[in-house]
């Protein structure tokens, strides 16, 4: 029986959520295609981490090797290309993460397996591998089909699927395979992790956040935004372009490469709602978005929306809140 491979992603000893999200979707596909769901885990001490994977997958393939202590895409590529050549899975799923982005396109090219990246949905429809992706920062969805092949590969967007343990648990069989790595990688060497510098502002601890995005247009508008945040007793946070431009330091960035926040209130000002931003704030209790584009994706993740120039709403709202404060 052929398999669906899911590459377990882990870092600094922890299996990352994307693994369970992919396993959940893969479970559904495996049932429909009558294939065997196989979690694949590589690492220095991968066996220790296999247990939770057995609850999702029928098989857990383990490759242990000192040389796999830290992820590098070339070592992973070598191991996975060996495994895929040997097991010929119908489909291999890898996270569309900093690891998967570095690994999957190169692996697929080596094996000449059709690859679809950053998928938010996927299925075999009448034997054709069909995926859903997004374009133009989430404003348009696209359905694409892969050319016919024995084996396919896809990278999966984070949080595209809700992880759910199969009932009853799969009670998967653990299988160890020897590592095909013979020597230390010669072209790419992991040196170390670097953590963001400590100190600064902890936006994850704030009750209220005002998130500003590229829509604030000019650095000259920063004081007005700071003033507004202060008025409502909120901390200023932002989308990535604001950090890239150097208008705020990176401890203020919300999103996949920034912080995940869950305040009681998140006001998004001039933020389009790219999924990398949304990943970091969608679980806030109350989300209010102000954006002049009625089709901005952010409105699909907000409780309340205002389609208007933020420079009209912000001063008006500041005045209103000041009035209320005086009434008290």
């Amino acid at each position: 029986m052929t398999a669906i491979f899911v590459l377990a992603e882990h870092r600094q000893g922890i299996i990352r959520d994307i693994t369970y999200e992919m396993l959940t979707k893969a479970h559904e596909i495996a049932q429909k295609t009558n294939t065997e769901l196989t979690a694949v885990i590589l690492g220095k001490s991968a066996k220790e981490k296999a247990k939770p994977l057995t609850e999702y997958a029928q098989k857990v393939l383990i490759i242990e090797d000192q040389k796999l202590e830290n992820f590098t895409s070339d070592a992973y590529q070598k191991v996975l290309s060996t495994l895929i050549k040997e097991h010929k899975p119908l489909l291999t799923l890898i996270g569309h993460t900093s690891y998967g982005i570095d690994l999957a396109p190169r692996l697929a090219t080596e094996l000449n397996i059709p690859l679809a990246t950053d998928c938010i949905d996927l299925a075999f429809e009448g034997g054709t591998f069909t995926v859903t992706r997004q374009m133009y920062g989430g404003k348009v969805n696209t359905t694409a089909t892969a050319r016919k092949a024995q084996s396919y590969m896809a990278t999966i967007r984070q949080a595209a699927f809700q992880p759910q343990k199969p009932q009853p648990p799969a009670n998967g069989q653990i299988i160890e395979q020897p590592s095909p790595l013979t020597e230390e990688a010669a072209t790419k060497r992991f040196i170390e992790y670097v953590l963001p510098p400590p100190g600064g502002v902890d936006i994850t601890a704030a009750d209220k956040l005002v998130g500003i995005g590229r829509g604030i247009k000019d650095q000259a508008n920063m004081p007005q935004m700071e003033e507004f945040a202060k008025t409502i007793g909120a901390v200023l946070a932002c989308s990535r372009p604001i950090v890239d431009k150097g208008w705020l330091s990176n401890d203020r960035q919300v999103g996949s490469s920034g912080k995940t926040v869950k305040p009681k209130l998140y006001i998004a000002l001039g933020i389009s709602g790219a999924f990398q931003h949304v990943l970091g704030m969608k679980n806030s209790d109350l989300i209010i978005a102000i954006n002049k584009d009625p089709n901005a994706p952010i409105f699909s993740f907000s409780d309340y929306g205002v389609v208007e120039d933020l420079f009209k709403i912000v001063p008006a709202l500041k005045n209103k809140i000041n009035e209320l404060k005086i009434q008290k």
Binding site: A108, P114, L115, A116, T130, V131, Q134, M135, G138, K139, V140, N141, T142, T143, A144, T145, A146, R147, I287, A289, N295, P297, F299, S300, F301, S302, D303, Y304, G305, V306, V307
Partner: peptide, 18 residues
Amino acid sequence: WLKTEKLYVPPVEKQAEF
């Protein structure tokens, strides 16, 4: 590897109250 079949505006799962 891939052929675009169609483009569409994403369905709204949750819409903000405007």
